[in-house]
Write a protein that binds this DNA or RNA. Structure first.
Lengths: 133, 133
DNA sequence: TCTTGACTTAGAGTTAACTCCAAGTTGTAA
DNA sequence: TTACAACTTGGAGTTAACTCTAAGTCAAGA
């Protein structure tokens, strides 16, 4: 699979894919004899992982660390497990914050919709919220 | 409340608080006659909102837009409601990605823990996952 | 009053994560 | 075999969101 095909499949730029490889977010990609990237299933699986975890806000540094450990072989299984668990906490923590924001948003939207329907800003029970918009 | 107290309360730097005010993520904060920031309840409510939505990955630009609309008065209620709904979609979308990453992590952690317990990398049913680490 | 530490501003610098550029190479189609 | 698009690299540039610096002002205690 060419870099272009991978780009299109995952809606990501070629520059980003090359950047990921250069800094070690993914291991080195398989090449043609001429030196052109030819993504195999395994390469693509790494790309998929990288995108998935970056989408979840994981820092590039953490992904690099994981790939480095992976390349050191079986002796790093413990370290990798720990890293994955750390990542898990990281994501759970972040998701908690998303839920709080969502709750706040739903509350605000509800009030604004009442204001729209009635044509007036009718809230009176929550001066603080009224003041802060 | 002084800037220092607000910093400590929300675990955020004074620089960030001043930055938020400067670029309009929050409206201008109440000052003492000498020009020193003296956060009132309303100011703090804005700070809380800013932190909450930034924590949920909302871009600063979006918060600035909201504050701008808020300051333009009641005529912008529709626009504000739309902005809030857009923010809601944004966060829901992001959270979906967090859930996907979490699922992937849980799967990997499960397999690594088996490897740790048995002392061997025993997975055989999923060559692809094995290869990609 | 003087000192000292926290505050102020404008503006420059930093960091993470890309994103772009120039100059050269590869591979396919005519 | 020549054109030409798509690829390659190293390195510079960009963007968002802070973070720091310098030079000065404010305010509480000795």
């Amino acid at each position: 699979m060419t870099i272009k095909e991978v780009c299109e499949k995952y809606d990501i730029t070629a520059d980003t894919l090359r950047y990921y490889e250069r800094v070690g977010v993914i291991p080195e990609v398989t090449r043609t004899p001429g030196g052109i990237r030819d993504y195999q299933e395994t390469d693509i699986a790494w790309v998929e992982n990288a995108i998935c975890f970056r989408d979840a806000g994981m820092p590039v540094e953490m992904l690099i660390e994981y790939v480095k450990l992976y390349q050191e072989g079986d002796s790093t299984i413990d370290a990798r497990t720990n890293l994955l668990k750390e990542a898990r906490e990281y994501i759970l923590e972040a998701r908690k914050k998303y839920d709080i924001a969502l709750k706040k948003l739903d509350y605000k939207i509800g009030r604004y919709e009442i204001a729209q329907k009635t044509g007036v800003l009718t809230w009176t029970c929550d001066e603080d919220d009224k003041k802060k918009g």
